[in-house]
């Protein structure tokens, strides 16, 4: 009898204990973030930041691209498609810009005045594309990417990001360092799309050449 009654008591008591716990949880605010709509949690400190090794997505500064097709060749998954037309022999469109790597691991894209490797303990003036002038001490400079003549019209420069395996080999072979992996977070880390074809990034801008690109078709045929 005692066993029977204590069974009833413990049955009721444990159920009530459980109900008290769940009711406490019921009153607590929920921990869910309504992520795409509510980004306020990004400002909170306890949210983990994106790790340093994050490579980001590919970006091409098309003005500096010389159409050498090295990236297309080295790509292990063939996700880069480049179609170029060669200019007549001896002609060039323009030179690509210098890329100045600083020792604090930042980089400046712009033309160095004089286009020479700066001597130690001098100041270097860099004219960027948006007409700003930046002066840095030559001690801060780690390395400089030289200018290259642009002798190709780029009709097509497509990177299929749905195929890309993010190895970064193309950025390493790029002679002008215009093809970079870009981890700009304002751009967002979420670049999924609803249509697969939207993942084919088209960088070529044929309208940036003054003359129509068709004129040099013969040149490419000769090439």
């Amino acid at each position: 009898m005692r066993h029977y009654l204590s069974n009833i008591y413990f049955g009721v008591y444990t159920a009530l204990v459980g109900m008290r716990i769940t009711f406490k949880q019921f009153l607590q605010p929920s921990v869910t973030h309504q992520y795409p709509y509510d980004r306020s949690f990004e400002q909170k400190k306890n949210v983990r930041e994106i790790p340093k090794g994050y490579r980001g997505k590919l970006h091409n500064r098309i003005e500096d691209c010389i159409g050498c097709k090295k990236c297309e060749m080295i790509c292990p998954v063939d996700c880069i498609t480049i179609v170029t037309q060669k200019l007549p022999r001896g002609e060039r469109l323009w030179d690509s810009m210098n890329v100045v790597h600083l020792k604090d691991r930042t980089e400046i894209v712009g033309n160095i005045e004089g286009d020479e490797k700066p001597a130690p303990n001098t100041t270097v003036t860099i004219n960027t594309r948006d007409d700003r002038t930046i002066t840095v001490s030559s001690d801060e400079i780690a390395s400089i990417v030289e200018r290259k003549p642009v002798i190709f019209y780029l009709d097509q420069f497509d990177i299929d990001m749905s195929l890309c395996m993010y190895c970064g080999l193309c950025t390493e072979v790029c002679p002008t360092e215009c093809l970079i992996m870009f981890d700009n977070l304002s751009d967002g880390i979420e670049y999924s799309t609803f249509d697969r074809t939207d993942l084919i990034y088209e960088f070529a801008e044929p309208e940036m050449y003054d003359q129509p690109a068709d004129e040099s078709t013969e040149a490419e045929a000769a090439d």
Binding site: T22, Q25, F26, Q28, S30, Q34
Partner: peptide, 13 residues
Amino acid sequence: KVSAHIQDRVGPM
């Protein structure tokens, strides 16, 4: 909704 809030979720939104 009740089940969600008991489990600290928000349920259908």
